[in-house]
Design a protein around this nucleic acid. Structure first.
Length: 592
RNA sequence: GGGGGCGUGGCGAAGUUGGUUUAUCGCGCCGGCCUGUCAAGCCGGAGGUCGCGGGUUCAAUCCCCGUCGCUCCCGCCA
């Protein structure tokens, strides 16, 4: 039988095409049988078109139509006709026409569905993942996948316009176990040896700079064997970029341009550049996070000066121990119940705070409840310093600086969401700069690179690198948006001597450095250009653009939080022969 | 590694401070009716070991313990 090849999509027909003979291919979205006349809502990627089988249609056509069920894949041959005025559906793009069927052919039938292909259907994620191909048929998923495609396309377009080359790097590489856990791939040819899947193309893109391709990018797959989250998968995609002969200003300018182009071209949304800049210290002090939600202000404030001498033992002892007391004014939350405050305290405790102190500003401007008795006499001073007004709730965390900030920051974020301060149509970008280069690892009793070991220290700290590593700020930067870390990057070290000093600070012997990154260090001996780069996370970017809160929503085939792909059931066991070939043996985990 | 939430016909939910009769509702599914619907409507029907295992009890979907699965969060994620 001759193929009924489509001549139009289900989203394109309008009254201008009335009278045309067309063939549509698609899926039965809905079937409505009125006994005489029958309607098929035919769906494809482009839309839904109403197909009509008229009362006077021939017997076999009617019989075929009556056999149709949801999600049958069919072909329809028919004629476009305008609907009578009172039957036009203004909700539908194709609502002014319908296709009168002359022939319907079932291309593929469909079992009873595990869930409806419907915007309103809310199957639980587990089922959506198992039957991902069905989930992806919905317009909402098709829209997100298209958005992702558009972002990829416009990324390539924009970076090409800016002179970048897209260069692929290997996905079977040397394991350099720093930071996240590597995924390992056993080698058959070199028994007992392993490749790693790249956590990022970091070393390769730096080598590409040495090779003279001074602007590089790649939509790179990155793999990290760590616990997954709503905004974190075992594998994700980065818009990986690197440039030679640049300072961080140049990187910012390119990324700001890229973001503006992507939001404009893919969403039609204008975003303001340049982006706001915050130092790491400012971000922590004011918002309690290195990826602050900036769609609302409600900043944390330092309460140390007023807490000192208050007579409140918790505050005073923390201050004596060199800690910090942070305050947050929750505007208009003076009517919060003990229970509500308890929930906020729970958020603070989650991030390591011992508790959450509070008091309320009464209508008379005095302080009441919670710890107010310690401040009652200085009420005006307290409210004045914090900028609080009657009806406000004052919240406090006293702890070591970082804990105090992050714990109260978590309270701030929770409050902001609760109070509806985050406008879903707003995108608040900011650069976070001046990160510390090193972090003290308590367990290992040594300094570690906060970002990675190839990050350039800021020049003003070069002289004191070894003396006071904790004070050193790096030339590294994060791009944040709406409380998510969207990108992370740095200016790199290209001087082997300086690189060696960094290795020394983190206790990396020359020998160990050579063993792990010898090829990069060697490359740097052959005229390495100054360079730097950044890597926006594609999944998070598309997630934010799509207004979603999980990157699973913008990944066609995601894994769950346990790293399992419910559709293909990976990871799976393998044949003994495969293990034998690789010289691998499975050792059962000891129970108990 | 730790903490919270959830698990009830194919799907989404309700329910029982432990009890009476057939575990309820919407969607879907099956059958019938219906010339204009577009989340069609009307009538009828099938479909459940209430995640699994154990315990308490005269009696457990409900309480307790364990376990599995999913999920959110802390840790982790240079």
């Amino acid at each position: 039988m001759e193929q009924l090849k489509r001549t139009a999509t289900c989203g394109e027909l309008s009254a201008a095409r009335a009278g045309d003979a067309v063939v549509l291919n698609g899926w039965v979205h809905r079937f409505r049988d009125h006994g005489g006349v029958k309607f098929v809502g035919l769906r494809d990627r482009y839309g839904i078109t109403q197909v009509v089988v008229d009362e006077d249609a021939d017997r076999s056509l009617k019989a075929t139509a009556e056999g149709l069920k949801n999600e049958y894949c069919i072909a329809v041959r028919g004629t476009v006709r305008s609907r009578p005025l009172d039957m036009v559906n203004r909700e539908m793009a194709t609502g002014e026409i319908e296709v009168a069927a002359a022939e319907i052919r079932v291309l593929s039938s469909c079992e009873t569905l595990p869930f409806m292909i419907d915007e309103r259907s809310e199957a639980r994620d587990e089922l959506r993942m198992k039957y991902r191909y069905l989930d992806l048929r919905s317009f909402s998923m098709q829209r997100k996948i298209k958005l992702r495609h558009d972002v990829c396309y416009y990324t390539r377009q924009y970076l090409h316009e800016r002179g970048f080359y897209e260069i692929e790097t290997p996905t079977l590489i040397k394991s350099t176990p720093e930071g996240a856990r590597d995924f390992l791939v056993p080698s058959r040819l070199q028994r007992g040896r392993f490749y790693a899947l790249p956590q990022s193309p970091q070393l390769f893109k730096q080598i590409i700079m040495v090779s003279g391709f001074d602007k590089y990018f790649q939509l790179a797959h990155c793999y990290r064997d760590e616990d997954a989250r709503g905004d974190r998968q075992l594998e994700h995609t980065q818009i990986d970029m690197e440039m030679s002969f640049v300072a961080k200003e140049d990187v910012f300018e390119v990324v700001e341009g890229l973001m503006a182009a992507l939001f404009q071209r893919a969403l039609g949304v204008g975003i303001e550049t340049p982006f706001r800049r915050l130092s790491y210290d400012e971000a922590m002090n004011s918002y309690g996070s290195d990826k602050p939600e900036l769609r609302f202000e409600m900043p944390l404030q330092d309460f140390g000066a007023l807490a000192a001498g208050s007579g409140f033992g918790v505050f005073e002892s923390v201050l004596t121990d060199g800690g910090t007391v942070k305050a947050l004014v929750a505007g208009g939350c003076g009517d919060y119940s003990r229970k509500q405050i308890g929930q906020l305290e729970e958020a603070a405790r989650t991030y390591g705070a011992a508790g959450l102190a509070w008091m309320k500003v009464s209508q008379s401007g005095g302080l009441e409840g919670g710890i107010s008795k310690f401040f009652a006499e200085r009420a005006a001073e307290v409210t004045g310093a914090l900028g609080a007004v009657p009806g406000d709730l004052l919240l406090f965390v006293a702890d070591q600086w970082k804990t105090a900030c992050t714990a109260l920051g978590a309270v701030r974020t929770r409050l902001g969401r609760e109070l509806g301060l985050c406008d879903p149509s707003q995108f608040s970008f900011a650069w976070i700069v001046d990160f510390p280069l090193f972090e003290w690892n308590e367990d290992a009793s040594r300094w570690e690179a906060a970002h990675h070991m190839f990050t350039m220290p800021q020049e003003r700290f070069l002289a004191t690198l070894e003396n006071d590593p904790g004070a050193v700020k790096g030339d590294l930067y994060d791009l944040v948006c709406n409380g998510f870390e969207l990108a992370s990057g740095s200016i790199r070290i290209h001087d082997p001597a300086l690189q060696q000093r960094i290795f020394n600070v983190v206790g990396f012997s020359e020998e160990e450095a050579r063993r792990r990154f010898g090829f990069l260090l060697e490359a740097f001996q052959y005229g390495a250009p100054p360079h730097g780069g950044i890597a926006p996370g594609l999944d998070r970017l598309v997630m934010i653009m799509a207004g979603e809160s999980s990157i699973r929503e913008v990944i066609a085939f995601p894994k769950n939080t346990a790293g399992v792909s419910l559709m293909d059931d990976s990871p799976s066991q393998v044949d003994q022969s495969q293990l034998d070939e690789l010289g691998l043996q499975i050792v059962e985990r000891e129970s108990g």
